[in-house]
Design a protein around this nucleic acid. Structure first.
Length: 873
RNA sequence: GCGGAAGUGGUGAAAUGGCAAACACACUAGCCUUAGGAGCUAGCGCCCAAAAGGCUUGCGGGUUCAAGUCCCGCCUUCCGCACCA
């Protein structure tokens, strides 16, 4: 009885055995040098934040990547499959405040814990290439890049309105604000503050980042669309409206007081004395229909108007308040339009017409010029606003071949101009070009391109991040930290509190320094960098992680890049993936890398949910990977996460499903251990030409190999790959009587089991390794060649072909696989059921698709008898 | 509002325009027993007591010998964008 007990599948015993061996042989999963002569394959999964615990989303992500990596190893590639830690960030500081643990200590112990989890899951990572972003040997290169960018004007400082999260006590980039809330704190409304901040000039690459998307055909369309929208390129025209002279003002305007003339809005470039209001429009063809100019409440000219007009100021403040409320509600789009007339007028440069200047709450200060011309007849928003405030609505576009009587607002650009003086009858498209050219010629505007993308604000008033390597000297101003003084180290001993401002500012030993230029006393910059800086280039560092002279060796990068396959969550479609593309271009311009794009193929895997809902503490529906591994084993947890859904879809986690996969692995285990001793006696022998059960099983095997190989090459339906392996095992098992009767020779059994183990290796690496050993194999499974499907063996010699009448299934016939059309047709027509149904009817057409089906089309007047019967009833 | 993805059994799902529901989970019945989160056998879309038969891929049209799959219109869910001038 004990021998049967030994047949129990004990995943923990098997997995721990192999994990110990793998740990003792790190070269197994290590990339080889470029000189190894093999083709390279770089498979990368997004690196985790070291929160202390892997979650099921991680298990799924890394199960996908590890399966791919293992497959590519077996295909003979030199695989780089690295792992690291996105180790800077706020949670470490919050933990420090809460538990009084230094951020570094907290982070490192989390990393240790998660690394143990990775080991226990049997992930095949190249730990030699491990990158930990909070280590000085990594972040010094953040600083180095910062300086290079500063030298090129790509890093700069400006005072600006910034998003401030009161919970994080720091600012954040636009990309990190979601519906007016912090991306980390869904319940925390982001405030606007005026601060001097460091920025990266990502807008300098806006055009290129947009164009580059076209070539990224290995990326999900969804991600490309999201980036396109985020960059938000918009072609239009900037036009200067002239500010009407005060004594030009018509009746009914308010007395404005004095003092607006000092303001330099728009007149610097043109060098004229007349005040200008520059507006941006995509529809300059409608400019003869402009009946007002609308300013954002934050527009500089508004401040000038309100300076001497407390009543107006109060009204403008109210508009600002409305915007703030809407932003807090997370829906700026739904704000009710309000505006206030300033009493001032602007002159349309095309026709000299005076239009009133308003301030409105729906005008965005930070898009375009913060000012628009309002054309109610041809813009929905302007129409709504003009209707509300009784502003004139002047139609200037009409459909070319119809009467001008159209419903306003008429938004189509498919039309011609009217009420537009000499430009009447020009098409909209033509007029846009002509009017923009005129503006440029006359010096009151130009065709221009506006982007929604803003420069990347990278300053953070936090401790646990990369110090910005700049020094403020009273004499020399801003001074770079010299390269030979890098890294600027984060001080270790520091008190973290929830006070505002940078914690580093309260560390005198850090702040006080000497100016590299004059040697006098100076102060360090105390802002640290956004952690998205770390993740913008970490995958380059993996290729040369220990380099102390440079961020990496360009020659090594040249070998490994671009990344062949990047895998991660779609939630990083905008943030990380756009920053990374920007960073690669900066490095290209620095001469460090050759390519424009770091990632050739991108894959976004679906979320892991439970009962249809995202796993979260508050819902209490968290499934712990440790628990899964303890109950069912790493192989079962991994294989289930590939089996339960295709990788791009959301996966609903069901513990019963994992149990099912575990039971399946148990069957494989019993099958393997039962027949391995017999199979291994055949090592070195060639199998004879198979027949009977052998042929049947080998055929199924080779069909399975073909299917799985094809999926790895692109389709990635790993769920059906696992199902195919299950089918194969089921078929072998259901032939158990024949196996026991010795109908299958040892060489055939060896091929069956060997191939089965190879197919299983990417999905259940521990069990595969164990059975591999039991089959008498010495070397690592990873170095064993992936099986090749023998098309001849895989081919069926007899097929079941459905026979339909008028598209309805009637019966199924068996024919030789290579039967020709005539043979199949004769067989189908000869079937008793077919004859019964066609008796007395006219078969007008016979469709025979060899290998697929037969369809008999009856004359329409001949009703199928069975249908006729049901009609009577 | 705009853009994208999806909608198939009790559940997760499968299906180059060619037998809808593979592979699993759950469930039902039986067997076995070392009583295990074990193993084995059989059943399992819906209607009909059963068989025969009929029906079935969100809804409605269309193309086709043939539609879950392609086209048009609608509904629902999820995701992204959303006064971007």
């Amino acid at each position: 009885m004990t021998d049967e007990k030994e047949l129990r599948y004990d995943p923990a015993a098997i997995e721990l055995k192999w994990q110990a061996r793998w740990a003792a042989e790190p070269a197994l999963y290590a990339a080889e040098p470029a000189t190894c002569g093999k083709p390279k394959y770089y498979v990368l999964e997004m690196l985790p934040y070291p929160s202390g615990q892997l979650h099921m989303g991680h298990v799924r992500l890394y199960s996908i990547g590890d399966a791919l990596a293992r497959h590519m190893w077996m295909r003979g590639y030199n695989v780089l499959h690295p792992m690291g830690w996105d180790a800077f960030g706020l949670p470490a500081e919050n933990a420090a405040i809460k538990n009084n643990v230094p951020p570094r200590e907290w982070t490192l112990s989390n990393i240790a814990a998660m690394k143990r989890q990775f080991m226990r899951l049997g992930m095949g990572f190249d730990w030699d290439a491990e990158v930990t972003t909070c280590f000085p040997d990594y972040y010094r290169w953040n600083q180095w890049f910062f300086l290079r960018m500063y030298e090129r004007g790509l890093a700069y400082r400006k005072k600006s309105k910034v998003n401030w999260c009161p919970e994080c006590c720091t600012v954040m980039a636009n990309e990190q604000v979601i519906d007016g809330r912090c991306w980390r704190h869904e319940d925390t409304i982001v405030e606007q503050r005026d601060l001097v901040q460091w920025f990266f000039r990502i807008t300098a690459y806006a055009e290129e980042l947009l164009e580059g998307l076209e070539a990224l055909d290995g990326w999900p369309e969804k991600v490309r669309t999201m980036q396109r929208n985020w960059i938000g390129r918009s072609e239009g025209t900037e036009v200067d409206f002239f500010l009407a002279e005060k004594d030009d003002q018509g009746l009914g305007t308010r007395d404005q007081g004095t003092g607006t003339e000092e303001l330099g809005i728009g007149n610097r470039e043109q060098g004229t004395d007349r005040q200008r209001i520059r507006v941006f429009t995509t529809r300059v063809d409608t400019i003869f229909g402009a009946t007002s100019v609308q300013l954002a409440p934050q527009h500089a000219l508004v401040a000038a108007f309100t300076a001497s007009d407390p009543r107006l100021k109060a009204e403008v403040d109210e508009l600002i308040e409305q915007q703030k409320k809407a932003r807090e509600a997370g829906d700026l789009g739904a704000i009710e339009k309000h505006g206030v007339a300033t009493g001032r007028f602007a002159v349309n440069p095309y026709n000299g017409e005076r239009v009133p200047i308003w301030v409105a709450n729906y005008i965005l200060a930070d898009y375009g010029t913060g000012a628009i011309m309002s054309v109610p007849a041809h813009d929905e928003r302007d129409f709504e606003f003009a209707s509300k405030y009784g502003l004139p609505i002047v139609q200037v576009i009409r459909p070319e071949n119809e009467t001008p009587a159209v419903v306003l607002p008429y938004l189509s650009e498919d039309g011609v101009l009217m009420n537009s003086g000499e430009f009447d009858r020009l098409s909209c498209e033509r007029a846009q070009r002509v009017l923009a050219e005129m503006a440029a010629r006359e010096g009151f505007g130009k065709a221009t391109v506006t982007f929604r993308l803003k420069d990347w604000g990278v300053s953070r008033q936090r401790y646990w991040g990369t110090p910005i390597p700049m020094i403020h000297c009273e004499r020399d101003g801003l001074v770079q930290v010299p390269d030979d003084q890098l890294p600027v180290l984060l001080p270790e001993q520091i008190e973290i509190t929830q006070q505002g401002g940078s914690p580093l500012a309260r560390v005198p030993e850090f702040v006080n320094t000497t100016c590299p230029k004059c040697g006098g006393p100076a102060k360090r910059e105390t802002d640290t960098m956004d952690t998205f800086v770390d993740s913008s280039w970490y995958f380059y560092r993996y290729t040369d992680a220990k380099n102390s002279k440079a961020p990496f060796d360009s020659a090594v990068v040249k070998y490994w890049f671009p990344i062949d396959q990047y895998i991660g969550g779609v939630e990083h479609a905008i943030l990380h993936l756009i920053y990374s593309r920007f960073w690669t271009r900066v490095m290209r311009d620095l001469g460090l890398v050759e390519e424009d794009e770091p990632v050739r193929r991108m894959f976004t895997q679906g979320m892991v949910v439970k009962d249809g809902a995202k796993m979260s503490k508050s819902k209490g529906n968290i499934v712990s990977p440790d628990d899964m591994v303890a109950r069912f084993g790493a192989d079962a947890a991994r294989m289930y996460s590939l089996f339960a859904a295709p990788p791009d879809r959301d996966l609903d986690w069901q513990d019963d499903g994992v149990a099912g996969v575990s039971r399946f692995l148990g069957r494989v285990w019993r099958l393997g251990t039962k027949y391995a001793p017999m199979a291994r006696t055949a090592r070195g022998q060639r199998p004879e030409a198979p027949s009977g059960t052998s042929l049947k099983l080998l055929r199924k095997l080779h069909q399975t190999i073909a299917k799985i190989t094809l999926d790895f090459e692109g389709r990635w339906h790993f769920n059906t790959c696992v199902a195919a392996i299950m089918e194969l095992v089921n078929e072998i098992q259901s032939a158990d009587v024949q196996l026991a009767a010795g109908e299958i020779s040892a060489p055939v059994m060896l091929e069956l089991l060997r191939s089965l183990v190879l197919l299983l290796a990417p999905f259940a690496p521990h069990l595969a390794a164990e059975l591999w050993e039991q089959l008498g194999e010495q070397g690592s499974l990873l170095r064993a060649p992936w099986p090749v499907s023998d098309a001849e063996l895989a081919r069926e010699d007899e097929l079941e072909i459905p026979v339909q009448i008028n598209g309805k299934l009637v019966t199924v016939i068996r024919v030789a696989a290579d039967a020709n059309v005539m043979t199949i047709q004769a067989a189908a027509l000869g079937e008793a059921k077919v004859q019964a149904r066609t008796a007395g009817k006219t078969v007008v057409k016979v469709i025979v698709v060899p290998g697929k089906l037969v369809n008999l089309v009856l004359h329409p007047s001949d009703k199928d008898p069975s249908r006729g019967a049901s009609v009577v009833k």
